[in-house]
Design a protein around this nucleic acid. Structure first.
Lengths: 154, 154
DNA sequence: ATTGATAATGGAAACCATTTTCAATAAGAA
DNA sequence: TTCTTATTGAAAATGGTTTCCATTATCAAT
């Protein structure tokens, strides 16, 4: 993929869902596509703001809301009071889940057990979709506990 | 178990963690033990308030924070702006997970696939604990998507 | 039982991420 | 180009959660 076109191609996706493609939305997609981190709304706003000075934080929230409904983005809550967002179909990053320390809020990504996990998830999603008539777009798996340091501190 | 003693026995647990057992904490434990729903802080406050008029909302938040650190309670975020809390070792309710509609916020509990899930989780927790030196206390699994109604609406 | 150090409490005010409002602007079909 | 209508940004409002602080309660040591 040649550089400079990241985030392109999303126009059809938006229009297909009955929405318009706009400059702010393009920029936001570019930011989301260009990272492998979990960004907060403000993180995204700040990155986008560098490209387009007129970008407003409100638009970021509105677009994220849209993207979530489109199933393109997942929202995470790690318990620190601000939500994080991530593309579901991340081309950049490996599929991963999170370990969260309930004491210091440290977040560890892990990619272990992914094979088992994916297999389990595939079966579960299929079964749950059918039984509960849900159109499942994404999922979250998080483990909570005490990290090494906090364990010793106590 | 004879009635009227629900929530008792927690004193040791608190003291064991270096905290004191107090009336408000007893009442909060009673509320949490006595429900199989996911209560918000305010839900808990209102229930507790019936037993003890002096109960303050601040104390509920503080106690929940404590219980989370103790690994006794899990905090859920279903995306409606208020967190929900639930005992991890629920004697009342079956272990379950959640399906959440990203459009209307409807929450469906499911207990299907629990056997596979439990098996997977057991292995994952053991492996992750060792590898990342985490003391895992609880976990969250949530599926997001569109419920039957919202699917048709579009 | 009494004491005393200090953890815990409640109420009000502060915080701050997220929403709402609204007039101005831009997208895209005709 | 024109017109309809979705989208936008800024500021204000919202509301769940935290912080502050003076008062009260717990519980280990006496």
């Amino acid at each position: 993929m040649p550089g400079g076109r990241m985030g392109a191609g999303w126009g059809g996706r938006f229009r297909g869902c009955g929405y318009r493609m706009t400059i702010p939305r393009q920029i936001i997609m570019k930011v989301l596509s260009g990272t492998d981190k979990h960004l907060s709304a403000e993180d995204i706003y700040m990155k986008a703001h560098k490209t387009n000075q007129d970008m407003g934080l409100t638009t970021v929230y509105r677009t994220l809301e849209l993207l979530m409904q489109m199933g393109v983005v997942v929202k995470f809550d790690f318990g620190d009071g601000r939500a994080r967002y991530e593309l579901t179909e991340g081309t950049k990053s490996k599929h991963h889940h999170h370990l969260i320390c309930t004491s210091c809020n440290r977040i560890v990504e892990y990619t272990d057990f992914m094979d088992e996990e994916m297999e389990f998830l595939k079966r579960a999603e299929k079964g749950l979709s059918k039984k509960h008539k849900f159109d499942i777009k994404s999922h979250i798996i998080q483990f909570y506990g005490l990290c090494d340091k906090c364990k010793k501190k106590k």
